[in-house]
Amino acid sequence: MTHRRLSTETPIGAVRRYFGLSQQELAMFLNVGKAIIGHIEAGRRDLTLALRLRLFPLLRHLPAPPLLPPDDEPLPATTPAPEAAPLAFRRKVCLHRAQGLRLELMKLTARAVYASRWQQALPTILADLEAAAALLPPVPEDGDLNASIRRWLPSLARRFKPSHAAQYHLLRLQAEAYETEAAALAELLARA
């Protein structure tokens, strides 16, 4: 009975698997015989420097191997339960930060609501100002007050800018992340 040698995947095998090449196709690319590819892939021969240099244009396109085991791998059964104090403290920090972000979100939401109200009311307000100016005689000491007001009012409708919208969404995502982390910590604390 023969035992196959367990080893990590060779660069040749990784290139073949990633690009879907047969040993014959890779041998043609590297200008070597198919048998050499088989020996290197099986670990019976080492990859020479010359072959590594010819293989480099393909190797550079391979995704980087993961440095750590996957996140979804469970801890061994013998792992002790986590200490509650650091988890509880982190949960408290997350809730505090989320609350602060929610307050900032309330300010941005109010700003957006006020800007929206001004956008909706502005045409009517400007028309009313024009109508009032046509009915009333001009007051010399006021100068062109209505003109100043007509220039100023549109700025109120533009107080919520695209940068504010971006800030709103970033803060919302951060708050949700903190709240999600706090909920996961609460669940972990309940199990511990």
Rank of each mutant, 00 (worst) to 15 (best):
T2S: 13
H3P: 13
R4M: 15
R4K: 15
R5I: 15
L6W: 12
T8F: 07
E9L: 06
E9I: 05
T10L: 04
T10F: 02
P11A: 00
G13P: 00
A14E: 00
A14I: 01
V15W: 01
R16N: 02
R16V: 00
Y18C: 00
F19S: 10
G20N: 05
S22L: 09
Q23R: 11
L26M: 04
L26Y: 01
A27N: 09
M28C: 02
M28R: 03
F29N: 04
F29Y: 09
V32Q: 01
G33K: 03
G33E: 05
K34M: 08
K34S: 06
I36G: 00
I36K: 01
G38P: 14
G38E: 15
H39N: 14
I40A: 14
E41W: 03
G43V: 01
G43W: 00
R44M: 06
R45W: 06
R45L: 05
R45A: 06
D46H: 05
D46P: 04
L47T: 02
T48A: 09
T48Q: 09
L51D: 07
L53I: 14
R54N: 06
R54I: 03
L55E: 00
F56N: 08
L58D: 02
L58M: 09
L59K: 00
R60I: 03
L62I: 02
L62M: 04
L62E: 03
P63N: 02
P63F: 01
P63L: 00
A64V: 07
A64Y: 02
P65H: 04
L68H: 05
P69L: 14
P69D: 13
P69R: 14
P69M: 10
D71Q: 10
D71E: 12
E73T: 11
L75I: 12
P76M: 11
T78V: 07
T79M: 04
P80G: 09
A81I: 10
P82F: 09
P82S: 08
E83G: 09
E83K: 12
A85G: 12
A85T: 08
L87S: 13
F89M: 13
F89C: 11
F89S: 13
R91C: 11
R91H: 14
L95D: 05
L95K: 03
H96M: 05
R97N: 06
A98L: 07
Q99S: 05
Q99C: 07
L101H: 02
L101Q: 05
R102M: 13
E104W: 09
L105I: 13
K107W: 13
A110G: 07
A110R: 08
R111M: 06
R111V: 04
A112Y: 02
V113F: 06
